[in-house]
Design a protein around this nucleic acid. Sequence first.
DNA 1: CGTTTGTCTTTTATCGACAATAGACAGATC
DNA 2: GATCTGTCTATTGTCGATAAAAGACAAACG
Lengths: 271, 271
Amino acid sequence: MAKQNTVFKDAFNRCLKLLEQTANLPSEPELGSTLGISRTTVRAILTRLEEVGLLTWEKRRKIVLRKPVASDYFPTEETDSLSEIIERSFMRRILDGGAQPGMQINELELAREIGIGTTGVREFLIRFSRFGLIEKRPNSHWVLKGFTREFALELTEVREMFELRSAAAFAHLPPDHAAWHELEAIEARHHAILADIENRYLDFSELDERFHLFVHRASKNRFIVDFYDVIAIVFHYHYQWNKTNARERNARALEEHLAYIAALRSRDPIE
Amino acid sequence: MAKQNTVFKDAFNRCLKLLEQTANLPSEPELGSTLGISRTTVRAILTRLEEVGLLTWEKRRKIVLRKPVASDYFPTEETDSLSEIIERSFMRRILDGGAQPGMQINELELAREIGIGTTGVREFLIRFSRFGLIEKRPNSHWVLKGFTREFALELTEVREMFELRSAAAFAHLPPDHAAWHELEAIEARHHAILADIENRYLDFSELDERFHLFVHRASKNRFIVDFYDVIAIVFHYHYQWNKTNARERNARALEEHLAYIAALRSRDPIE
DNA sequence: CGTTTGTCTTTTATCGACAATAGACAGATC
DNA sequence: GATCTGTCTATTGTCGATAAAAGACAAACG
């Protein structure tokens, strides 16, 4: 195998979802921009749709023959890109506790365990190293620095500095700036989740990420915005792992966010 | 070629330098740790030293036959690791002005130009992306964001936040901490360069990097320390490119550093 | 008994090859 | 005349292979 066709499979699945709602397909370029892929892949999808009997396709004439059923979809395992697979697999390893700080990381072993080539693992580790959890010894192994208390403290220190700076920048946006509208939308979502906290408390994670990234963007500083990736990935996997008291914790966080939003709106420089 | 033997060549050259000073070599493990390489490479070096008639080597008996001459050394071009070569080549491209912001970066083209495989280029670009100068469009090209005014401003903003924080941490170190001694050493070097500024103003760059990294380390925060890599590389290549008024600029910076050091010592929280 | 050496195995760094995907261009179609 | 399609080329993502370098272990040495 040279390259996984996950882009194709994922786009194919998303195209099927589209077909469940509407019965006629737009032109190739339009479909391409809807799905975020090139025309080459669009045509591969159309070809496959024809093969499985969902479509007659001749030039501009595209006729949907039937609604897609569950078996038409590609299994979700096959639609994840290689880097997503590695990331999940690697984070599980770290957070499951099977990985102590100071431990060596072996590229080949990791590759075999996940079932991919070494190149993918190497590139992942290089990308991942910016999160400060691993470190390279050149010509030798990687060292796992671990999800330790120090790591959390260091992360929090920088996070707070950046958040303060971004919040101040946000508060100084001109009153007619589009961000104020989006802030309202985000606030509304907070109220919506709070109103049905029992059932929707798990929706908080996504909203949390969206909210903080939104505030950080106001800094207009690529380093601050990029750093949010580190925070997001840590929170993402940490909460996936530790769900105790999630309901209460999220409810409290939602209230805090609302106070935070009010402070932003009043241009109060104190967080 | 599978792997460049630059580690061997570079260590070999450094070993020759050692031979210019002392006439007898230590044991293999000791030599290895002196040169920062494994015993495998030490033995390769000893073998080569024997081949070129610099040494008789049998078990523990190592007899140096003559002093090394210039032609014994490997040419310096061959001792640079692949990543150093790529970095230099790439930075020259950016700073020479041959590269406008928004420009696409082509992996294959870059690889051919430098004369290496695509894997090396890819890994370099991934590592380099954390400097915020390039950005990846998945399944497509990299985009050069360029050495623009915004870039400099964003970098400076974070730099100042981190420097302030680190300086505060430094000032709170206990009086018996080893760092205060090193600070004195660094201060002395400042005076030494200032005393002979006409001839030594170019030594400032290295001292500057050492000083700031030293202060940042006091933060004990990996993200702050790591960020200094970004600053260092930018300054390194920027000054290599722009040397106008270097003497005056460095002289002024030296004075500023001395005031800074005095403030640290007086534990003045204001930078 | 602690190093040092000889030998062997393991792991990393780098390459070229190839399928998936993006993208360019001219002719066809509305 | 703008957009769409057919076709072709260019580029990226991923793999396995291989030489360099690291590292493990037992026997030899002092």
